[in-house]
Structures are given as C-alpha cells and as structure tokens.
C-alpha cells in the first residue's frame, strides 16, 4: 500500500436527516432501521437497553461510546448474531425480531466484525466469491454438475476482481487470506461484504488495528459506499476519526443511547463529554490509543496503562491462536 497519507477529499455531508428537536431517539426523515425497546442482559448485567433509535438512510452513521458501552452487542442484536431479552426492530420496514443472521444478510444488511473474520485458509479470490449471493453451485445437488454453475461463477469472478481492484487487493488474489496484513484483511472483509450489493453496510470498528496509512484509504472507501447509494453504520470508539466522515453520530454509554446528532453538535454536548469521557474529559483519546503523539496527564497515563493491559490480554489470546495457525 502506498504510504502517502493524503487527507480525504472533502465531500459534502448529508444534512437534514432528522425531524424535530435533536435528542436521543429523535425521528428521522427516512429511517432504514428502527429499534424499539431492545434489551440484552448478560447474567444480571444490562449490556444494551435502547428505548428508541432510528438510523437514517443513505447516510454514514457512527455508533460511538467507550469500551463496554454495548456498541458491539447492539450490532450483534441488529444483525441476528445475538438474541435480545426484549424488544423489536425492523430493517427497511420489515421486522427482524427472531430472524437468523444469514437471513438479515440476504435482506441486504451485511456486516463486518471487530476481530476481522477474513477466512485465512481460503484465497483472497475465494473469500470474495463466498460473498456473492444466490449461487446455484452452492446447492448441493447442483454443485457436482459444474455446467449448472460455471457461467455464474465466471460472472462472480469478474465482479470480485473489479472490487479487489478498487480495494487495491487485485495483486493478492491467489494468496491465502491468512498472509495479508491486518489492514488488508479489514479491506478484504469489507470488499467481500460488498459482493452482495447490500443496501446497508454495518462495520464493527473498521479502523481498529489498521496502520495510519491504510486508515485514510479505509475512510475513503467508507465515503465511497455512501456515494454508491448505500447506508453505512459503523462502530468506533475514537471520536476524532468519526468527525471527518460521519453524517450522524449516535453515542452509547452503559448500554443506553445518551446522545445523537450531527458530529459537530454532538461532540459539544455535555452529556457526551460526561458519559463518554467520564472523569477523563481532558484526555485526548487519540493520545491514549497511541494514534496521536502527545502529552498525557497522570490521569491519562493511568487510562493508557489500562488500555495497554487490555491490549496485552487481547494479544495473549491472539498469540495463542496465531501459534496454533503458524506451526
């Protein structure tokens, strides 16, 4: 990947998404997702408790909040990977309650994962082909009769190569996905999700673990999705990343929606600063996470220490898996 970190060309933001006064749960002009009373409890701990939430169509919505705010859990609930204890939600006017994950994907709502799920034992091209919907060759009866699916397979391959070129992965198509860098895997996962021409793309921390050079191009790709007519929802815990690309920001803390609104408005809200940063409001999170160089107050130092511990635990896990893979 090229190392030039050109800032994304400024693109116009979508405005006028909501109706009425801005507050948590405000109605949108054209919502694609409507959530009502969704609650998820883990062993007595309420992870998600959302009274009402609407996601605007054809806009980029960022879901932000500190660690443990319930962002990923809400994502899992919306995409059918987890079941809530109560509540209803709909996508494009169709209720999704009790619908399994693969069906929500077929409806045009695809997602990526926080810990990238590129399939390391398949090649990059195979990963892409897996993303294509309605394949005749995936029916077991037809699969052993290649003449039934060869033509479609060729079409899928053309489309996959186009997408790979757009994501600058075309030179890697024969490599096993396991050999890609972390950032490339994120790109592959996103490209793979696009194989099904979704209407809604849900990205869980697309920027986590990606080096700064790739971050820019990832942000560009997210903006492209909107230009292509898709709706994007993404989870991020770094507010500064969000500011540049999001049209709408939803802030979660302790499982609840504490604020929402256009990025510049929301970042100034006291509720956000209180809930999101808690006692650490003078700490630049960019510095804590190591993305931005800067001085840290003692308080910030403690926070950074905490973050490093969590990182270490995650790495320990990853290392265990990696050695298993790499032997």
């Amino acid at each position: 990947m090229s190392a030039d970190v050109a800032p994304p060309a400024p693109r116009p933001k979508s405005t006028g998404l909501h109706t009425g006064e801005i507050r948590p749960g405000v109605a949108k002009v054209d919502p694609i997702i409507v959530v009502d009373g969704v609650r998820r409890v883990f062993g007595g701990l309420t992870a998600v408790d959302v009274d009402h939430l609407e996601i605007p169509r054809n806009a980029i919505t960022a879901l932000i909040g500190p660690n443990g705010a319930g962002k990923t859990t809400l994502f899992n609930l919306l995409t059918g990977f987890d079941k809530p204890n109560a509540g209803t939600w709909s996508f494009d006017g169709r209720s999704l309650a009790g619908i399994p994950a693969y069906k929500t994907a077929r409806m045009g709502q695809v997602r990526t994962f926080q810990l990238t799920k590129s399939l390391g034992l398949l090649t990059v091209l195979e990963n892409m082909k897996l993303g294509a919907p309605k394949q005749a060759g995936e029916r077991i009866g037809a699969s052993i009769l290649p003449f039934l699916w060869r033509k479609q397979e060729a079409e899928i391959e053309v489309k996959a190569r186009e997408l790979l070129a757009r994501f600058k992965l075309d030179t890697k198509e024969k490599d096993f996905a396991a050999s890609l860098s972390g950032g490339q895997r994120k790109l592959l996962e996103m490209a793979r999700a696009l194989m099904s021409d979704p209407t809604l793309v849900m990205l869980d921390e697309p920027m986590a673990g990606v080096n700064p050079a790739l971050t820019q191009s990832l942000l560009d790709h997210i903006l492209d999705l909107k230009d292509l007519g898709m709706t994007v929802v993404f989870v991020e815990h770094d507010m500064h990343m969000v500011r540049h690309i999001a049209d709408w920001v939803v802030v979660m803390a302790e499982g609840r929606i504490v604020a929402e609104g256009p990025p510049d408005t929301v970042m100034r809200e006291q509720a956000v600063i209180d809930a999101y940063l808690g006692a650490h409001q003078d700490v630049d999170l960019g510095v804590v996470t190591g993305r931005v160089a800067g001085e840290l107050t003692p308080e910030g130092e403690a926070l950074a220490e905490e973050a490093r511990e969590i990182d270490a635990a995650i790495e320990a896990d990853a290392a265990a898996t990696e050695t298993e893979d790499g032997k």
């Binding site: 270490a312 790495e315 320990a316 290392a319 990696e322 050695t323």
Partner: peptide
Amino acid sequence: MAHARTAP
C-alpha cells in the same frame, strides 16, 4: 499462554 511462541 502468552509466551507460546517462545517455546523452542
């Protein structure tokens, strides 16, 4: 288990 890789 964090030192898994160092075991010769």
